[in-house]
């Protein structure tokens, strides 16, 4: 099959970018979106042009490196699928695909489809952990955790930090990402002692990074490749409001 790509090309963080059109002639329906870009890039290199820069690593939907907009949808049209796992059989022959980087003030574009997501690390750094010095832990079975709680914590912990939630949110809010970590740790008994402090610190950092606020629109949930639920945002709000309340 054949596809037409319109790709955002931008040489560097300060450079101006624009959409550039590429014809992808020989597309195998079993290819992934990234393999298609590989093929396009090989041709560009042989023509002496710079290949399209895009982020990727594991190519199996778990590292969270990859991600860009395809026709206005973060990670493309297939639900619960990252671009590295999106195969071309989901597109029509001759279809035109617009590939654009995540857009947010907190995620500046570095080059083409590559953005800087360090803001996420700083949000985690601000409190997305349980303070436990190495070697001081009690036996693993000394804390019993109901299976249901463990499962729900796992649901939230599945976030891969890809940034699609921010990209899709009309407000460029990182509420789903931040909420996912707060929910993961807050659902476990080990996470209780720091629950309030964690919410305060993570939310403060998330605000400092310049993400927008959440107005419960729900685009994030729809594009999240790991199916993180809006519930985690409510949990973040609750923990935060409680924390403020208790620290009068």
């Amino acid at each position: 099959m054949r596809l037409i790509l319109q790709v955002w090309r931008q040489k560097g963080p300060q450079a101006r970018g624009r959409m550039v059109r590429y014809d992808a002639g020989d597309v195998n329906p079993d290819m992934s979106m990234l393999e298609l870009l590989d093929v396009v890039n090989e041709e560009l290199i042989l023509k002496g042009e710079e290949p399209i820069a895009f982020e990727h690593d594991c190519r199996e939907g778990i590292c969270g490196s990859c991600g860009f907009m395809i026709n206005g949808i973060a990670h493309g049209p297939l639900p619960a699928t990252t671009v590295c796992q999106l195969s071309m059989r989901h597109f029509r022959d001759g279809q035109e695909l617009y590939l654009e980087p995540w857009r947010a003030k907190a995620f500046p574009v570095l080059k083409d489809l590559v953005v800087d997501r360090r803001a996420f690390d700083r949000v985690i750094s601000a409190g997305g952990y349980i303070t436990v010095p190495t070697g001081s832990a009690p036996d693993g079975n000394s804390i019993l955790i109901p299976k249901e709680d463990a499962d729900r914590a796992m649901d939230a912990a599945a976030c891969i930090g890809c940034g699609a939630c921010v990209a899709a949110c009309p407000n460029a809010s990182a509420a789903l990402f931040t909420g996912a970590k707060i929910a993961h740790l807050g659902l476990l008994p080990q996470g209780q002692p720091e629950r309030h402090e964690r919410a305060l610190r993570m939310v403060r950092q998330y605000n400092r990074e310049g993400f927008g606020s959440c107005t419960n629109i729900g685009e994030c949930e729809a594009v999240c490749p790991k199916g993180i639920k809006l519930e985690v945002i409510a949990r973040m709000n609750r923990d935060y409001i409680q924390a403020i309340w208790q620290r009068r």
Partner: peptide
């Protein structure tokens, strides 16, 4: 929220909201 996305998308399609 306006500030949070200084450069918009050429194409943006809402999905489930």
């Amino acid at each position: 929220n306006l500030e949070a996305r200084p450069v918009g998308y050429v194409k943006k399609k809402p999905t489930e909201s």
